[in-house]
Amino acid sequence: MSLPKRIIKETERLVAEPVPGINAVPHDDNLRYFDVTIHGPAQSPYEGGIFRLELFLPEDYPMTPPKIRFLTKIYHPNIDKLGRICLDVLKGNWSPALQIRTILLSIQALLGAPNPDDPLANDVAQRWKEDEPAAIQTARDWTRTHAMV
């Protein structure tokens, strides 16, 4: 299967006009598979951390959303132990007019604004609601341990 023009163009544009704090590079041997890093947003518990993610464009992309997962461990109410992300645009709210860039920006925004009312990691969300300062401190600790090298 040759690579659709859309994916080629998206990749070119990601390189030509990079997003600050976000980096996405396709594998040489599989242009649908991207290594992604996202810098934790300033003034968030993830500040200073560099988080690794994997992104895969399925066969019927852009009709279906990219598959994305955190590889770096992260303490966040909307990201579970396996790194899966609870984000509406990655599920039912996906639209083919969205793109890798917009999705990564949404994930970066999610780091800046955790939403414990729509949790994926229930224990984390619980903690977040019960004792937010403690939860934020844990998120900071995890960032230091896992996302700073």
Partner: peptide, 10 residues
């Protein structure tokens, strides 16, 4: 650059 389809980028 304005007459590009948002689905296929063509």
């Amino acid at each position: 650059s304005e007459v590009e389809c948002q689905v296929c980028y063509g």
